[in-house]
Design a binder for these strands. Sequence first.
RNA 1: GCGCCUGUAGCUCAGUUGGAUAGAGCAACUGCCUUCUAAGCAGUAGGCCAGAGGUUCGAAUCCUCUCAGGCGCGCCA
Length: 551
Amino acid sequence: MKKRLHDVLKTVVEKLGVPSPEIVIELPREESFGDLATPVAMSLSKILKKPPRKIAEDIAGAIEEKEIFEKIDIAGPGFINFTFSKAYLHSELRKIITDGPAILRENIGKGKRIQIEFVSANPTGPLHLGHGRGAAFGAALANLLTAGGYKVEREYYINDAGKQVLLLGKSVFARYMHLCGAGEYAFPDDGYRGDYIEDVAKEFKKEVGKKYCHSALKESPQQGIIAAQEFAYGKMLDIIKKDLGEFGVLFDTWQSERELYKSSDVTKAIEDLRSHGHIFEKDGATWFRSTDFGDDKDRVLVKQDGEYTYFTSDIAYHRKKIEKKFDELIDIWGADHHGYIPRVQAVIQALGYPKESLRVLLVQMVSLLRGGKPVQMSKRTGEFVSLREVIAEVGADTAKFIFLTRRSDSHLEFDLEVAKAQSAENPVFYVQYANARINSIFANAKTKGFDTGGLEDTDLGLLSAQEEVRIIKKLLSYPIIFEGAVIAHEPHRITFFLQEIAGMFHPYYHKYKVVTDDIRLTGARLSLCEAIRVVIKDGFEILGLSAPERM
RNA sequence: GCGCCUGUAGCUCAGUUGGAUAGAGCAACUGCCUUCUAAGCAGUAGGCCAGAGGUUCGAAUCCUCUCAGGCGCGCCA
């Protein structure tokens, strides 16, 4: 619809003497204005030195393909409003039914390769709600971009080296010592305290027995701690993978931080930076001069004690990513890491790439509420609600829908009571219900002997009720919404669109009966329902939501 | 103190990257189940777009300042 109009306008405006005009086409705010509108006359008034309304008239008058329009109006300061003919609308609707969702998806990526890294939670505990938001958003974005013609790789970066994993090992080991009755053994001050530590410790004990248990280890527990660390980290990673899998979020690649050390990617990265003169020594440490690239202070790579910082392996990680030559790299981070962006982009530039090579999308914080009251979350004390628990309480679809009805960079209040209420408070059911209702319409049609498979020859001209025309126009605007969502990397636009479609279907369903004695009318209305179902299912697939047959 | 995000209906949030008279859901109130699923439908009500300036044909949207909330500012990860 939009593409067709764009072509029409381009020809006309070029005829008016503007070589390569930028033609903006938008959905008008008011339906009564028409189906599509362009403010192009207003933006041309400066170039052509004529009043916008006059230009609008010239453009409208010069359009040759009048048959696809019912009317063309000039309104307001110089908008040109287009209303499409019923015949054109019906032919476009037909394509949805015969060609399926592919016809609705604009090919924007044109096969470009894009990598999205998301979740990447430390394997030191179960995922919490904030990770869930990142997971839902990242997965939906990946699906959206895939549908938009990109080749997408989903990556999870595993921080399996460094202090946090060691601390996990110490925490589990301390519990283990306690379990096997080794007497007083101090729990690390800043150790992980959740119940899951206890569980892992028990499993660890089952695995290794009392091997590390004798009291001598109290003085030199290194071996036991390492063993506990290896065991626990593997366990946590399994749990994370399982939780993500049950949430419907899958990854193509899992990049281990340890591997970067083992393969000397880390040392190579430092040498790379050094050879370009971005490294210096100070106070017994090795520094990266990130201030040369807009960071507000220089960053330590190798500490006085000879240990690497977290940032160092992250340099290696991003260097490796960039060398894979994706057309676009996306990192999805929790908003609490936003201060980290300048130094990573400094790395990108120091390696000789434009900082735009990496796009960091921030997912804002989630506050968990129950009945309006905040639920405290702290990994340190172990008092936090895991993603698994939330899903068990409210359901995966509900949780995802709540995540995906907001822009990723707006703060989110997640109220368990509101989410759980089995009423229309959960808009996800509203949309799923529309799909389920359509399924039962088709079931009903079948029992009455209609050939629900052969909708290619139905007479769509019979869809003349105002509601039917509105729904058709809405369906045909899906590619426009889709295109905007892909370009802006905003899956939530799809979510809102689906709610609008459902919001048009339900009243229609209530007012008109689809399956009647009128065979031809029934066929036409079944076709409309089929098109709605195609669009809803396509949206759900992108968002990672299930579309139950029955509810 | 500096930086980033946010501020739109009572509540939770959209607002198509600057377009036309400001949108949805929930909550509130009034009605609708012998008819393809009432997780539904019809209707009523609800606004100084935090505030003040500016940019232009045109601002919730862009710029500056103020106020309020959140998050960052380690030789932690």
